[in-house]
Each structure stands twice: as C-alpha cells, then as structure tokens.
Amino acid sequence: MSPHQISAPRDHKNTHGSVASYTVGFVASLILTGLSFGAIMGRWVSHDMALPTLVCLAVLQLLIQLVFFLHMGTAPEQRSDLAALVFTVLILATIVAGSLWVMHNANINMMPTGMSTDSAKLKP
C-alpha cells in the first residue's frame, strides 16, 4: 500500500487496478486452481491431507481475487465495504460451520435403523 493512497483518499486511480494487477491476479488464480485440481486428480497429497490442502488453496485464491479483481483494500473510502465483507464472512462461517457441526452430531447420535427403543436403552 503506497503512502500516496492514504494521503489522498479522493484519488480513485489506485483502486481501479491496472493490466499488471489483473495479470498477477489471473496468473496466481491459474496456479492455485491448477494446484487444487492436481492435488486431487494427480493424487499429489495423501488422502488425509487432501481436504486441508483444498481449503488452504481455496482461501488463498479467494483472497487473491478479492484484492486483485475486486480491489478490496484498507484505503479509507473502502473501509465500509471491507467491514461489510468481514461481517458477512462471520455470519457465513457461523451458518456453515454451525450447520455441519449440529447435523454431524445429530447423525452420529441417531438411532440406527432396525433398532427398537428398548434395545437402544439397553446399550451401554
């Protein structure tokens, strides 16, 4: 972030992006997408590490596209946009993680089909 951007919040030029910034975003996205597909199609990572790897690559690519394509930044005029995004991510994480957690617990505590209420009570 250049000091110019902070001292001149009315200057929109810096938040428009340039051919260079779009190219950097595009190439970085290509590489990260390639790594994601390669990790699964080419079995580059072990089965246990596959999901953490995918999540890391996806989060990295989301951040790169937010910065280079959507021009998210910390310049004063962008702060309200950024605040809205951060709040949305908080709600989003709560909805997704909460649903998965609650439903996973409901699944593993569900009485197996074919088991009666009485036999379930007898189980230690």
Binding site: L51, A58, L70
Partner: peptide, 24 residues
C-alpha cells in the same frame, strides 16, 4: 464488474467443496 468477479469467487468454492471434495 463487482457482480461478475463475485460469481468467480463463488465458483472457487463450488469447484473446491462440491467437485474436488466429492472425489475424496
């Protein structure tokens, strides 16, 4: 422009959590 780039962001999640995750 915002709308179009936003849809690309959503697609990152789609190919990661629907397609690639579905292969595990």
């Amino acid at each position: 422009s915002l709308f179009w780039h936003f849809l690309d962001l959503v697609w990152i999640c789609v190919f990661t959590f629907v397609y690639l995750r579905g292969m595990l």
